[in-house]
Design a protein around this nucleic acid. Structure first.
Lengths: 192, 192
DNA sequence: GTCTATAAGTGGATAGAC
DNA sequence: GTCTATCCACTTATAGAC
C-alpha cells in the first residue's frame, strides 16, 4: 500500500466525475475545482485528459483479462468457473466503482488505445462463451442459446458498478453468493 | 403510420449519434452533416439540442411506465408478470435501440426534465420490486434478496439495446422466450 | 506545485438572405 | 427549408512567474 501520488489522486477524482457526467462533459476545470486547484496546475502531473481516461480503462480491462486467465488455469467445473467470474467482477467493481463507469460508458472516447481495449474485451467475451459452451457439452448447463446466457450474465456483472455503491452494508462474499445463486440457479421456485 | 416529419428524422438521426458518442460528444454539426444539411438549418425544426434529448428519453420512459401499468392491471401470476416485463423490454428496445442508449447513458444530461425522468424510473423500479416481493410471498419465487433479483433482471433488460442489433436474425418472440428461460429458471441443469 | 494569462480551437445558437 | 456569416461562451493545453 504505497501512498498515492498526486497523479493517482487526480485519476481517482477524474473517475468519480466521469461517472457523474461522462468523459466529454467533465471539463478539466471541473476536475481542478474538485481537487481544489486551478486547471493549469493539473498539467504538472498529467499530460492530457485523454491520458487520464486511458489509465482508468486500460488498467481495469487488463485486470479482468488477468483474472479470467487465472480462472481458466484452474481445474474447476464450468459452473464453478462461472462462480469465480462472478467473484472477479464483484471484487474489481467493489474496489473501483467509479472506474467501472468509464470502462462501460466511455471506452469509445479512447484515442490511441481504443483498438487495444476492444481486443481485450473481444477476447474476454470469447473465453467467457467457451466456458458456457463447455458447460453445455458437459451436461452442467442447460442447452439454451449460449449467447443469450453470456449476454444475460455479463450484462448483470457489467452493471454492478451502478448498484454496489447503494449496498455498502453487503459484503462482497455474500453478494457474490447471492448473485451466483440468482444468475446460475434462477429465481423460479418450481421443483427446488 | 403517418409519414415522419423532418423533426422526427432529426430526432431519429440524433439518437443514432447519441448512441455512438454520447450526448455531450455529439455536436450539432455532426448531426447536420449526417442529415446532409448545415447546422443552422436544424434550428428551423428543433429549438435546441436539449429538446432532442428530452424527446428521446421522456417518450421512452413513459412507454415503459405505461407498459408496466398494463401488466399490473392483469390477473397474471407474478412469474407470468415477469415474463410480460421481459416482452415489454424486448418489444420497446427492438423498435428503438438507439433511443435506449440515451435512456440508459444520457439521462443525467437532461435539464428541465431530469427530475421527472428520475421519478418515472424510481416508480418503475418500485413496481417491479413489488412483483418480486409478492412472488416470494406466494411461493412462486425463491426467497433470496429481492434487490439482487431486481438488479440482476433489470440490468440484463436495460442492456438489451447493446445486444439486440447484433442478433437481427432472432425474432422478438423467440428472444423473449429464451431470456425468460435464462432469467427466471437459470442456466444450471441440476434437477431439471 | 500552483498560479495568472493567454493561445487556438470548438461548442450551441441566431440573423437575415435566398 | 437551407444557406452564409457570425456571436460569444467555453474547451484543452501551454508559457512563464512565484
Amino acid at each position: 500500500m504505497k501512498t498515492p501520488t498526486r497523479k493517482d489522486e487526480i485519476i481517482k477524482t477524474a473517475a468519480k466525475l466521469f461517472k457523474e457526467k461522462g468523459y466529454s462533459a467533465m471539463t478539466m476545470r471541473d476536475l481542478a475545482s474538485e481537487m481544489g486547484i486551478k486547471a493549469a496546475s493539473l498539467y504538472n502531473h498529467i499530460n492530457s485528459k485523454q491520458e487520464i481516461l486511458k489509465e482508468i480503462i486500460i488498467s481495469l480491462a487488463e485486470a479482468f483479462t488477468k483474472g479470467l486467465q487465472d480462472i481458466q488455469k484452474s481445474n474447476l467445473s464450468n459452473i464453478e468457473k462461472l462462480q469465480e467470474i462472478v467473484k472477479l467482477h464483484v471484487s474489481i467493481t467493489s474496489q473501483n466503482t467509479y472506474g467501472m463507469a468509464s470502462l462501460n460508458n466511455d471506452w469509445m472516447h479512447l484515442e490511441d488505445n481504443r483498438d487495444y481495449y476492444l481486443q481485450l474485451r473481444y477476447n474476454y467475451e470469447n473465453e467467457f462463451r467457451n466456458i458456457i459452451v463447455q458447460g453445455i457439452k458437459n451436461n452442467e448447463i442447460v442447452s439454451e442459446n449460449e449467447d443469450v446466457m453470456l449476454f444475460s450474465i455479463l450484462s448483470t456483472l457489467r452493471s454492478l458498478y451502478l448498484w454496489i455503491p447503494k449496498k455498502e452494508d453487503l459484503d462482497p462474499e455474500e453478494l457474490s453468493r447471492q448473485l451466483s445463486q440468482v444468475l446460475i440457479n434462477g429465481i423460479n421456485k418450481k421443483i427446488n
